[in-house]
Design a binder for these strands. Structure first.
Length: 695
DNA sequence: CCAATGGTTGGGGCC
DNA sequence: TGGCCCCAACCATTG
């Protein structure tokens, strides 16, 4: 594999048309590669010594409306775009990131014509069906306009398409399979340096005598776009997954309006510095960072420089790198003091090159002379190889990868709250409500009131900071799916998609399949204990004391299972379970046994998502009948809504929601007095816990 | 075809 | 504190 030389495709005649006018005119299309260092496609573009270079970002409505993206990831993206724009500007005062707002399939062909583009360069983004189709369209449009395409790869260590081919176009389901598939390609390519200069984005007429200042140049570019239709004038998206109405994170009312498409190139109304071709603001996405339950300022700031700084910091600690062992890192630490490198968000948006991370880690490990060096799968390189494995698996499966239905690698299991499809096989959006008990469990999960402190704390940390440790993700995923709740991994994957900054279309569904024992991993009898597992890493429960402050005065031995504490202990901690903090929504041990019994039956059938019985819609009924485990029921007296006073200030919903809560509250209130009894009933399940805690 | 082996990240008991 | 075994038993790979 020769990664240094990006493959070239598209119209062969285009090069001549560029030469005819005295040089190439390149558009570099930034997507998930928001960096200047180690970018082979960028390097290939600059190697043409172009007379004009247009660094483009297309603000794609697909991502704004049809993908559930929360405020933390949007903020990280916007910060990374702004940082990139500044870097471009400091390389060339006549340059910046040129942000145009609209569908790339509409805009790119127009820009090709109006800017006289001869070459389109971009880094291939191998995962996600939407992206693949969009890029195929861009290639076609380029060809139709006589524009040559230069596409390098740099989002992964290896060219995912080539690895997939080397694995007979089969998804890689084990790390060993991935390793043997890449072995014929040798080591990943060494990273290349960032360019030292870039040409200006000049219109043809300006090449001979360029404007002196970018403030003179941008109006000319703006003029060249005259007559281009604005996206806001189109009929708009079929649905808006991020709208408040569909449970997304946009604000309510007028402030939740998406205004970033009101103009083709900005500025947004709320921008303090008026400029065109500008990076949108959170406000123009209808999102308010201050009002949202997220950390302000961000603990994980976006941008290439921030990413490289963080990389340098972890690499300096050669012992840490050389002896890194993922299973031993703690899931119980807050984002500001994470036991892992926290580089995944930067890899996700390409702020840090994965090859640079790989080679820096190899070098640091070499320098360390002590004992206890680790190797794949547990070390840093192993982690990066897992990322490749999921990417090749996604590429091999295609569009069904992120769901169960018709997915050839995901085992069919009769989860509750599965994604539902209409008679034509189209996903129904928004998903119709499922059975009441599972919906209530799911609501308790996403609202961090399951009554299991580690689960609730991890959910709050995720919502606040946009990141949680890998093993905390395991705990949540095990609990929601095969461990206790028996809810489809699709729901969990969607929840993570909304909140994780580092959400990746291959790794995240892959990890949910792994944890739910749907693919990649199969030892379903290994279930994460809701208290025992985190207790191993941090017996003092500091994460819980921070994110569930109502529990902060519990003694260590009860912090992970406060409902097992004697009432006098609860009173002393000023927190009575069922009153000041929810009683557990389910019986951990009983549900675990139910789940294992169900898994056994589902495994014996051996159906994947593409089995005949699944496609015909009969599989669920057959499995339910066969395992005979009754549907879940709510604990009696279970309250769908917690009293808002019991929720910490920073986690409280806004006024409008409180009104809605009050209205519903009246209905639920009558069950309240039953709580003491529920508490007793659920106690049996956790006796083993309290016994251990007493030791 | 079969048996053996390994699988980043479970829990619990024992030394 | 860490290593070891057992629990009951899955899959994918390998010889």
């Amino acid at each position: 594999m020769a990664p240094k030389k990006p493959s070239s495709s598209g119209g062969g005649a285009s090069k001549k048309s560029g030469d005819k006018d005295g040089g190439a005119r390149v558009m570099y299309w930034f997507r998930t590669d928001l960096r200047l260092h180690d970018s082979p496609a960028l390097q290939a573009a600059l190697d043409l010594k172009p007379q004009a270079f247009f660094p483009l970002w297309c603000w794609d409505p697909n991502y704004i409306y049809k993908h559930r993206v929360g405020i933390n990831r949007f903020r990280f993206l916007l910060e990374s775009m702004s940082a990139l724009s500044s870097s471009l500007h400091s390389l060339n005062p006549l340059s910046q990131l040129l942000v145009v707002r609209g569908d790339p399939c509409d805009l790119l062909p127009e820009l090709f014509k109006r800017w006289g583009i001869t070459h389109l360069a971009f880094e291939r983004d191998p995962n996600d069906e939407y992206v693949r189709q969009r890029d195929d369209q861009a290639r076609k449009d380029a060809k139709a306009n006589g524009v040559e395409v230069l596409d390098g790869y740099g989002h992964h260590l290896y060219d995912i398409r080539e690895v997939l081919k080397a694995h007979n176009n089969e998804p890689t389901l084990t790390l060993g399979a991935l390793q043997s598939a890449v072995s014929k390609f040798g080591d990943p390519a060494k990273p290349i340096d960032a360019p030292k200069s870039i040409p200006s984005p000049l219109l043809k007429d300006d090449v001979a005598s360029p404007p002196q200042d970018i403030k003179d140049l941008l109006p000319k570019l703006l003029k060249s776009l005259e007559g281009l239709p604005e996206y806001s004038k189109k009929k708009g998206p079929e649905y808006d997954l991020n709208s408040h109405e569909l449970g997304g994170q946009r604000s309510t009312g007028e402030s939740g309006k998406v205004t970033c498409y009101d103009s083709l190139v900005g500025p947004d109304a709320s921008e303090s510095i008026k400029s065109t071709f500008s990076v949108p603001t959170l406000e123009s996405l209808g999102m308010d960072a201050k009002a949202a339950r997220v950390s302000v300022p961000s603990l994980i700031p976006g941008g290439e420089a921030e990413g490289l700084k963080r990389l340098e910091r972890v690499i300096k600690d050669t012992k840490y790198i050389a002896t890194f062992s993922k299973p031993k890192t703690s899931p119980c630490q807050d984002t500001s003091e994470a036991s892992t490198t926290l580089l995944s968000p930067y890899l996700k948006f390409g702020c840090v090159s994965v090859r640079k991370f790989w080679w820096d880690a190899v070098e640091a490990s070499k320098q360390y002379k002590g004992a206890g060096k680790t190797s794949p799968p547990e070390n840093i390189q192993g982690q990066l190889l897992f990322r490749e494995m999921y990417s090749v698996a996604e590429a091999g499966v295609g569009e069904t990868y992120k769901r169960v239905h018709a997915n050839p690698i995901s085992r069919y299991i009769d989860w509750y709250l599965p994604t539902v499809y209409d008679s034509k096989g189209k996903e129904i959006i928004p998903r119709p409500a499922g059975d009441a008990a599972s919906e209530a469990r799911y609501a308790a999960f996403v609202e961090a009131r399951t009554g299991f402190p580690f689960i609730d704390a991890a959910v709050k940390q995720l919502k606040t900071t946009g990141w949680i440790h890998h093993l905390a993700r395991h705990s949540l995923a095990s609990f929601l799916t095969r461990g206790q709740c028996w809810i489809s991994w699709e729901r969990g994957a969607e929840f993570f998609d909304e909140h994780l900054i580092d959400w990746d279309p291959a790794s995240n569904p892959g990890n949910w399949m792994w944890l739910s024992c749907s693919a990649f991993f199969h030892q379903y009898y290994r279930v994460y204990g809701l208290a025992t597992f985190p207790q191993k890493y941090d017996p003092s429960g500091s994460l819980i004391r921070k994110y569930c402050p109502e529990l902060k005065d519990f003694p260590d031995k009860h912090i992970y299972a406060p409902h097992t504490a004697p009432l006098e202990v609860q009173r002393k901690a000023k927190c009575e379970i069922g009153k000041d903090y929810p009683a557990p929504i389910l019986d951990e041990k009983k549900e675990k046994e139910h789940c294992i019994a169900r898994m056994k039956v589902a495994y014996a059938k051996g159906w994947r998502g593409d089995a005949k019985e699944v496609l015909e819609g009969k599989a669920q009924e057959i499995l339910r009948k066969e395992h005979g485990v009754p549907d879940p029921t709510l604990p009696e007296g279970y309250k769908a809504q917690e009293n808002k006073d019991k929720i910490p200030k920073w986690a409280q919903r806004k006024e409008e929601d409180d009104e809605a809560q009050k209205k519903q509250g009246g209905k639920k209130r009558k069950g309240e007095k039953d709580e003491e009894e529920d508490h007793k009933a659920s106690d049996t399940s956790t006796k083993t816990l309290s016994k251990k805690a007493k030791k």
